[in-house]
Simulated assay, not measured.
Amino acid sequence: MSVTAADAHVTHPPLPGARTGRDPDRAIKRGPSRVPPEVVAATQRDRLYDALVHTVAQKGFGNARVGDICQAAGVTRPAFYALFEGKEDAFLATYRHGIGVLWEVMEGAYTTAPDWRTGIRGGIGVLLSVLAAVPSFAVMAVVEIDAAGPAARREREELLERFHRFFAEAPHRDQVPAELVSSIIGGIYSTIYRAVAGGRVAELPGLLPTLTYFALVPFLGREEAADELVDRIDPLIVNPPCAPVAAARRPRLIE
């Protein structure tokens, strides 16, 4: 039961890092030009987004210099500082732009699904597929954000809070504490983080069955959620022999 961005029929603008900063299609010719200044600035900004992602992914946020980013983008330092206050400001702008793209495709997969379960699977699926397709952005946004300062980390926390939106219509939502939803979101993020930090970005789509099961089980129960794990988990883990005894010793969230 896997899903990809293509399966979900989702189209989206390029994620920062999907192109090189010096992409010839965005070259700005020197000399007299009738291209409006705002168009030039927007093109330079896009090129700097891509250049920052690649530079930070390769060198790390701490070692990446404004000069490195400008060189990778083919943009002058004065042009950089006309758009951003500095490296941290550029990182935040790039992160916000990229997260906006990710949010759009996730919401698209979720809201067009026929039911909540399919929507959750689709949302997680496109998240994993899009990150795997642009490894440099995954490294920059998931791992290097830790080094980008407190403002960047606050942006991440705000993003994780936004993910509660995908659980608002879950079955039995009123029986599941908000803290548990936060734990589900945090657990999914931590799993993605470990894969990206470990250099396994290409393997992210393979995490879909496990992460979908993890997201569904508090709302649907183990047996129904385990459909996501066909051929991937021992049945005894889903239905251990002591399950009735264990259930009798704690309150049940789902009847």
Score class of each variant (00 low, 15 high):
Arg65Ser: 15
Gly31Arg: 06
Arg249Phe: 09
Ala195Phe: 13
Leu208Trp: 03
Pro251Glu: 14
Thr20Gln: 12
Ala225Val: 01
Pro218Ala: 05
Ile188His: 07
Ser182Asn: 12
Ile185Met: 07
Ala113Leu: 07
Thr111Ala: 11
Ile185Gly: 06
Pro16Arg: 08
Phe219Asn: 04
Asn63Val: 00
Trp103Gly: 08
Phe166Asp: 11
Ala6Leu: 09
Ile124Asn: 03
Tyr49Arg: 15
Val130Gln: 12
Met1Asn: 06
Thr212Leu: 07
Ala225Tyr: 01
Arg252Trp: 02
Gly187Lys: 07
Phe80Asn: 05
Glu161Asn: 09
Glu155Cys: 11
Phe167Tyr: 15
Val176Glu: 00
Phe91Trp: 07
Gly198Val: 09
Glu144Ile: 01
Tyr213Pro: 00
Ala133Cys: 01
Glu179Val: 06
Val101Lys: 05
Gly187Cys: 11
Ala41Gln: 13
Pro135Val: 07
Ile28Pro: 00
Ile192Lys: 04
Ser182Met: 02
Leu229Val: 05
Ala246Ser: 11
Val75Thr: 10
Arg22Ile: 07
Glu224Phe: 01
Asn239Phe: 04
Ser33Met: 08
Arg117Lys: 12
Val35Gly: 04
Arg19Ser: 12
Arg200Asn: 13
Val56His: 07
Pro240Val: 11
Leu180Met: 14
Gly186Arg: 06
Tyr95Lys: 07
Ala51Cys: 07
Thr4Phe: 00
